[in-house]
Structures are given as structure tokens and as C-alpha cells.
Design a protein around this nucleic acid. Structure first.
Lengths: 191, 191
DNA sequence: TAAAACGGAATGAACGTTCATTCTGAGATA
DNA sequence: TATCTCAGAATGAACGTTCATTCCGTTTTA
């Protein structure tokens, strides 16, 4: 029995319960129980609740980034990049329902807002696929001239909402419909 | 001092505090204090917390509907209808920051999900501007053939996200940019 | 004056976090 | 090998706080 196992058990349980019950519906005690550890054990791996919540988000972010970079097209048009990213995101969140629900909650909470604010503030130099897409699109005069934030809203908001509707059972998002959505979003941002 | 006044004071205070502090950050006692009434008094007007939260949403919904119906264009093209609705929504939520924040929280909570589910279930016969837009668009073969839910996602998700970004200070949404967004959303849904 | 409205203290349930104690297994000892 | 030692991992009962709701004495209304 080594460290990483338990840490990961806790992370997975937190993901599941927080996604299903909401950030305010899953007490630490229940997360611990589901992970098969004592309540106090959580605090050996995560300083407090906030840190745990951020850690789950970090896990999802890293996984999605990995998924985006696998098969990332090289030396293609901006349009190709966008279609790759769009399809990848929809595919990933359709397949990972819990992570999708978790992300929604995260970005509609003070945690998510603070994170976005920090990212804007510190002009983070870290390589970012999304910012790259925006810059290239503007540079090549392929996309509409709007602030970066608005570009992301136009490009990705419908996808995120559609995935949510899929998981809530309001619509069945198959490959054909996904393609239609990504294509429609392209119509939205292209010049 | 008559009934309606106090009921409305409570409603306004709930709107403000719930929007600013989140659904889990504004205790009944604080709402009461802000409204200038005793804690117990809230329970004379609203059966419990859930009922209060739903009542605030209902107030916003009614107000927005009124705003949409004022100056509603008659006998115009689907495109005109869409631009009217889009501009109206952005305008309303830019001007009513608290109501905008409240609505986001509401629709990203079990309250909002349950409400949408109910609306779909009971095929509600009540006259609905949005459903009308969708039906007319399909009928006249002006918009893309997608399920109604997806239509709304494509048409309105970017607007809602953009307004949120405006209120979070990530972008300044002036008239010109609003027009650009509504126009881009039209590109997204039109055939 | 009887009834309704009101205020805010009281109640009890739920929660995040702590910490004194128990458990475990890898070395040390003989 | 059999036994002992002990660091630190794990535990969960207990604590202090917060909150929705209730209760009841007081004030207003008609």
C-alpha cells in the first residue's frame, strides 16, 4: 500500500461525488467513505477542501490537454486546428460525463472565476493551444476581429452547452450532430 | 406597511445577496437583515428557502419576457425576430447585472436543471417566444436542421457567456460588440 | 379587544477540520 | 529465524461553527 494509490482514490471519489452532488452536496466524510479511507486521511494528502477541489480540476485539465495534443495536426490551416480542438473537446466530455459535470460546476463557481482572472492577469507565458488558435486566426485574417474572450465564447460556448444537454438527457449527441455543431461554431467565428 | 412591500423587499434582498454571494453564501438571516425584517418574517411570505429561490427566478423571467414583448416586431422575417431577441437579452442582462448573475447560478444548479426537465416533459402549451422562433425558422427553411435544444445552444450560449465575461470584467461589451456577437450567432444558426 | 403580523432568540442538524490514539510493516537485535 | 522497536500513515470521535427553520412573546391592525 503506497501513497499514490490512496491519493488517487480520494481524487476519484471527490470527482464522482462533487460532480454528482454539487460542490456543496458532498461532505468530506462522504468522500472519505467512498474512497475507503478515514476522514482525517484526506487531510494527509490535501491541505483542505479548496485544495482538493482545485486538484480535481487540475487532473481534468491535464488529461484534456494530453488528449488534445495526441494526434494534434501539424502545419495545417486554422480551420483544421479548430475542427480538431472542437471535435476533441466534445468527444472527451461526452465520454467523461463526470468530468464534464465537474468542469461546469467549477467554472460557474468562485474557484473558476478566480482561476480565469489569474490567467488573464499574469499574461501567463505557458504554452496554450487555445490562445495559439486565436492568434493564428487573427494573423491570417481568417476569423472575425473580436477580443480573445469573445472569440472563446463564440467558439466553445455552444459545444459546452450541448454536451451538458446531452448528459442531462435533453438530446442525444452522436457523431453527426457533433460535426454539425463544430461546423456551426466555425461559421460563427470565421470571417 | 402592507404585505406586498415586505414581500418585495425580501425578494430584492434575496436577489442581491444570492447573486453576489452565491446560492450557498447567503443565509436566510442575512437576507432578512438586508431586507429590514425579522428572520421569521421571510417564512410568512415564502414557505422555505427553495420557494424563495424559485420566486426570485420567476420575477426575473417575467421581467425579461415583458421586455421582449415590448417593441416586439410584427410580421417580420425570422432573422429580424432573432436580432430583436438577441439584442434584447444582451441589453437586459448588461443593464441588470445582479439578475444576470442570478440566472447563471440558477441554470447551473439543480433548480435550473429540474425546471428545464419539467418544461420538456410536460410539452408545456404556454406561449413561448423562443419555441416560436425555432418553429418558424425550420418551417421557412431559414435555419439549420438541429434539435430545438441544440438550436438554443448555438443561438444563445455565446451571448450568455459574453455577458458573464462583461460582468466579470474580462471584456467591455458595448453596442458595437454586442451587434457583432448577435450577428455571429445568426451566422451560427442560419442555413 | 381579538386576530394577524412581526422579530429575533432558540433549536437541532450538518459540516469542515482537528488531534489523541491505533495500526502497520520495515528494519534492528539476538 | 523469531522478536522487538518505532516512524509515520491512518483513523474517526469530538469540536466549534454555521445555517434553515421553528417558536413564542410583542406589536400592529381592524
Amino acid at each position: 500500500m503506497n501513497k499514490p494509490d490512496k491519493r488517487d482514490d480520494i481524487l476519484q471519489s471527490a470527482l464522482k461525488l462533487l460532480a454528482e452532488q454539487g460542490f456543496h452536496g458532498a461532505p468530506m466524510a462522504r468522500i472519505a467513505e467512498h474512497a475507503g479511507v478515514g476522514t482525517g486521511t484526506i487531510y494527509r494528502y490535501f491541505e483542505n477542501r479548496d485544495v482538493l477541489i482545485l486538484a480535481v480540476h487540475r487532473m481534468i485539465y491535464d488529461e484534456l490537454t494530453t488528449s488534445l495534443l495526441a494526434h494534434y495536426p501539424k502545419e495545417q490551416s486554422v480551420k483544421e486546428y479548430f475542427f480538431h480542438i472542437g471535435n476533441c473537446i466534445i468527444d472527451y466530455f461526452i465520454k467523461n460525463s463526470l468530468k464534464s459535470r465537474y468542469n461546469e460546476q467549477f467554472f460557474n463557481s468562485p474557484y473558476g472565476n478566480e482561476m480565469r482572472r489569474n490567467e488573464l492577469d499574469k499574461e501567463n507565458g505557458q504554452y496554450n493551444l487555445f490562445q495559439e488558435l486565436y492568434k493564428k486566426g487573427l494573423e491570417h485574417q481568417i476569423i472575425k476581429t473580436v477580443p480573445m474572450t469573445i472569440f472563446f465564447d463564440l467558439a466553445f460556448a455552444p459545444m459546452v452547452w450541448a454536451v451538458r444537454d446531452h448528459h442531462l438527457g435533453f438530446v442525444a449527441l452522436d457523431k453527426a450532430l457533433s460535426d454539425t455543431i463544430v461546423s456551426a461554431c466555425w461559421d460563427c467565428i470565421k470571417l
